[in-house]
């Protein structure tokens, strides 16, 4: 436990040597997974409580939705979009907001209060899975890219090292404090990303440019696939209309 605290402090200060030692430690991945789960649960509980509160005290649909639609219409009028398209977009958003309000107002089997509380709890308990869904596939893809580029570190070692990116996210409950979210969210994200990159470079022992390339490759591949799919959809859409 003491070693974990020392490592955490070193990771927060982006100490490469400590990160390399940590990734080679027996049981480092188990600690890393526990850290990820804890950070996600803390943020998830705060987010779940906020969501349950919003569900309980949601104002009846009306003025807020009308204001959002009017704002959108005002913003669209300053774009080069054709008036017909603008009108259709505004009508679609108005109908979608109305639908959202109608869905939120439906009765729940256990009552409104219990339903909202359970919904908040579900949001909190799924938080670790959401974090895992981003971190694990991406890091495994980075591991494969690193292997292709000549890296020799195993997946357990790389996962253990990069899991420390969750350390700043132990402060995620701060995001629920009104007024702090705007500042805290980018700071925590960038701090976590810096730890991820530093830990990766330290544990993989690839040279700087190749380590950076390995981290960037899966992201670039994902963006390329999304763009190709979007282009195909747009092409098919254009041909059909």
């Amino acid at each position: 436990m003491g070693a974990m605290v020392v490592t955490a402090w070193s990771a927060l200060r982006l100490d490469a040597a400590a990160l390399r030692r940590w990734s080679a430690t027996q049981g480092a991945l188990a600690w890393g997974l526990a850290l990820l789960a804890l950070a996600s649960l803390l943020g998830g509980l705060a987010g779940g409580a906020a969501a349950a509160g919003a569900c309980l005290h949601r104002p009846p649909p009306g003025p807020a939705e009308q204001r959002a639609v009017a704002d959108l219409a005002g913003w669209l009028s300053r774009t080069p979009l054709a008036p017909d398209a603008q009108h259709e977009l505004v009508r679609t958003v108005a109908a979608a907001l109305e639908l959202r309000g109608n869905l939120a107002g439906l009765p729940r089997p256990l009552g409104h209060e219990a339903g909202c509380a359970l919904q908040g709890l579900q949001l909190a308990t799924t938080a670790p899975y959401r974090r895992l869904a981003l971190w694990l596939p991406y890091t495994l893809a980075v591991c494969a890219a690193a292997r292709a580029l000549g890296g020799r570190a195993g997946p357990a070692q790389m996962l253990a090292a990069t899991s420390l990116y969750a350390l700043p996210h132990l402060l995620d409950p701060l995001l629920a404090v009104p007024g702090l979210e705007g500042l805290a969210r980018p700071v925590l994200f960038l701090w976590g990303a810096a730890i991820y990159l530093r830990a990766w470079a330290a544990a993989s022992r690839l040279g700087g440019p190749r380590a950076l390339l390995a981290v960037a490759l899966p992201g670039l591949a994902a963006v390329t696939v999304v763009m190709v799919v979007m282009a195909i959809v747009a092409l098919v859409w254009g041909l059909r209309n």
Partner: peptide, 11 residues
């Protein structure tokens, strides 16, 4: 739990 938290499916 999900059935208790969410509105009924047919609704």
């Amino acid at each position: 739990v999900a059935a208790g938290a969410a509105p009924r499916g047919d609704e």
